[in-house]
Nucleic acid binder design. Structure first.
Length: 565
RNA sequence: GCCCCCGUAGCUCAGGUGGAUAGAGCAUCUGCCUUCUAAGCAGAUGGCCACAGGUUCGAGUCCUGUCGGGGGUACCA
């Protein structure tokens, strides 16, 4: 599709003596094919030519003569619309897809650049809750999206394994813990201790003091505290690994907060040397009052560090280590202020690269309207959701396609598809309210809908049983729906690019739903495997391109595309 | 109190930098499986885009205010 945009922008650039890139960017796809395929909005011309947009459009219409790939140039009000010759469209788009296969949509536009992403970041000693799902799947998807555009993408799981909460846990364990119970059911036991600590702390504030004291000891290297912490860590990462394996996610680095322990003193020294710190209420802070923000706390009055200290050390370390062109934090919107403070401090330290740091925020997940709180113990364990989703998928498979081989695996793929896709069902800024009904819905705008579409086309390919021919006669694909599908297919690279620029995998999810919906409408109405050999060949060429694109898109979202379901 | 985000169909959400008739899905109702997987398709119902002003040729989109919801606001992350 870019081919045609380039041809048109070249044509207009020559005629108007304007910048080609500028025109290229302003071109848009028409709403519904009624007005041709590609539109040039003439609003920008009114100031230049001192004419109304619609006047400019109609003048351009009479001046321009269409190149061979364009059948029609027409002014419609303020828009100048171009109609692409169907033959060219079909050959160009479908040809590209079949040639590039799983690379369709990829580009080397950003090769040579490095992006570092901080995502997932669950806390040890707690179950992997549904609250951490968003960061995990958005980050994973963005890694794949950036890589598809040529970036070297480095994924870091910034595990929450340091901080006051572990002091609390060590304290709780020292009071009520039991090694036997811990070994038998580590996460369950730790979770109970955590909840109990917060419950009892409400009546007895002494506990909070004990927790803080334990964290300070931990930071000082106290043997008892460190040993316990190591155990918690080991148990937790084993649990996380199980979840990540299931989701098909791996990280380049699993360097949690504790990794930056030995890097904090140097950063604090640097801040002091740059005269940025001061003592306020016995705590070591960077004052940000003149920037309208509360101070950034580096050390508590008991000398213990805070997460801002660790994030600061982490950012500086990452730049030294990876010399990134971009650093993304896939972290909930409630930490917005924290990142503003963090970035401001880095800026004050004189590091220009802070301009390339971005907090990619997202809304909360609420459970059927209720706030979820780890402290109070009402948490939805991700594995339970995945289990339930798989179970439901299995039930449907047994009902609809009982003879399928390895049904457990297919059910797992579908179940995961539903849960993961649900995370992309709205722009990331929105809060998501989790409900079992919606999470386990396989109808309509869902992952299984896309997977089902993919499986049906795969089934067609099996029935067809031959290799897809590339030298089809484009004139055989003359149905309006066929042209429309080609246009939609041609916009896939653009969708990926937009998704990357906006750090918004949702864009791809939307694109795929539209593609699948257009395909399903076509498939319902038009028979693909017809008697006429060359017609069947041509339709398979189209339909198979849809499958390739669906699979590539699902891959970018981190969702599997089974060939049967 | 102050700062940030949000308010579009009964519900969940789309509507890239203002621009061509406000769109999907779910739910409800009606059709479509002797032909490529009905996890599908076609259709119907459903909207003073929270409210009030303003900017302009043009506002769901931008500005101000009001109301309603969410988040943040120094020793949690």
């Amino acid at each position: 599709m870019e081919t045609f945009l380039k041809i048109i922008s070249q044509l207009l650039a020559t005629e108007l003596e304007m910048n080609k890139e500028e025109i290229y960017c302003s071109l848009q796809f028409t709403p519904d094919g009624k007005f041709g395929d590609i539109a040039f909005p003439c609003f920008v011309l009114s100031a230049r030519l001192k004419k109304s947009p619609s006047q400019s459009a109609s003048e351009l219409e009479s001046k321009l003569s269409p190149p061979p790939e364009i059948t029609e140039i027409r002014a419609e009000g303020p828009y100048l619309n171009f109609k692409v010759k169907p033959d060219s469209l079909i050959k160009e788009v479908l040809g590209t897809i079949h040639r590039e296969q799983s690379d369709y949509g990829c580009s080397d536009e950003c090769s040579g650049q490095t992006v570092v992403m901080d995502y997932s970041s669950p806390n040890i000693a707690k179950p992997f809750g549904i609250g951490h799902l968003r960061s995990t799947v958005i980050g994973h998807s963005l890694i794949r999206i950036y890589r598809s555009q040529g970036y070297k993408a480095i994924g870091i799981n910034h595990i929450g394994d340091w901080g006051t909460q572990f002091g609390k846990l060590i304290y709780a364990f020292s009071q009520w813990g039991d090694s036997g119970r811990l070994a038998a059911n580590p996460i369950g036991e730790l979770f109970e201790l955590y909840v109990r600590f917060h419950r009892e702390a409400e009546a007895n504030p002494e506990l909070e003091r004990g927790g803080r004291e334990c964290f300070r000891k931990l930071e000082e290297g106290d043997q008892y505290a460190v040993n316990l912490w190591k155990q918690f860590h080991l148990y937790s990462t084993a649990e996380f690994d199980r979840v990540y394996k299931r989701l098909g996610i791996s990280f380049d680095y699993q360097t949690g907060e504790s990794f930056y322990n030995d890097k904090m003193p140097g950063v604090i020294e640097e801040l002091k040397a740059k005269n940025l710190t001061k003592l306020s209420q016995d705590a070591l802070v960077v004052d940000l009052e003149q920037y309208g923000m509360p101070p950034c706390l580096l050390k508590k009055k008991d000398e213990a560090t805070l997460y801002a200290t660790r994030d600061l050390a982490a950012a500086i370390y990452r730049f030294k280590e990876f010399a990134f062109d971009k650093l993304l934090y896939i972290v909930g919107a409630e930490q917005k202020l924290h990142f503003q403070q963090l970035f401001k401090v880095i800026e004050l330290m004189g590091y220009g690269w802070v301009a390339n740091c971005l907090h990619v925020d997202f809304g909360r997940i609420k459970f059927e309207g209720e706030e979820m709180s780890t402290r109070k113990g009402n948490i939805i364990v991700l594995e339970e959701v995945l289990d339930e989703s798989q179970r439901l998928a299995l039930r449907i498979i047994e009902d609809k396609n009982p003879d399928i081989e390895n049904r457990e695996q297919v059910a797992e793929d579908i179940g995961l598809g539903a849960v993961i896709f649900a995370q992309f069902s709205s722009r990331r800024g929105k809060n998501i309210s989790f409900s079992w009904d919606e999470a386990l819905n396989f109808d309509g705008q869902t992952g299984p809908y896309l997977q089902y579409t993919h499986a049906r086309i795969s089934s067609l390919e099996r029935k067809y049983g031959k290799d897809i021919q590339a030298n089809i006669d484009p004139a055989l694909l003359s149905d309006q729906a066929e042209i429309k599908l080609c246009k939609q297919l041609g916009q896939f690279p653009l969708a990926i690019n937009t998704a990357m620029r906006e750090n918004e995998p949702f864009i791809i999810a939307c694109y795929l739903l539209l593609l699948a919906s257009e395909f399903n409408g076509y498939y319902q109405r038009v028979r693909v495997l017809v008697e006429d050999k060359s017609l069947a060949e041509a339709r398979m060429f189209l339909v198979s391109a849809v499958r390739i694109t669906l699979r590539n898109g699902l891959y970018l979202l981190g969702i599997k595309a089974p060939v049967k379901m």
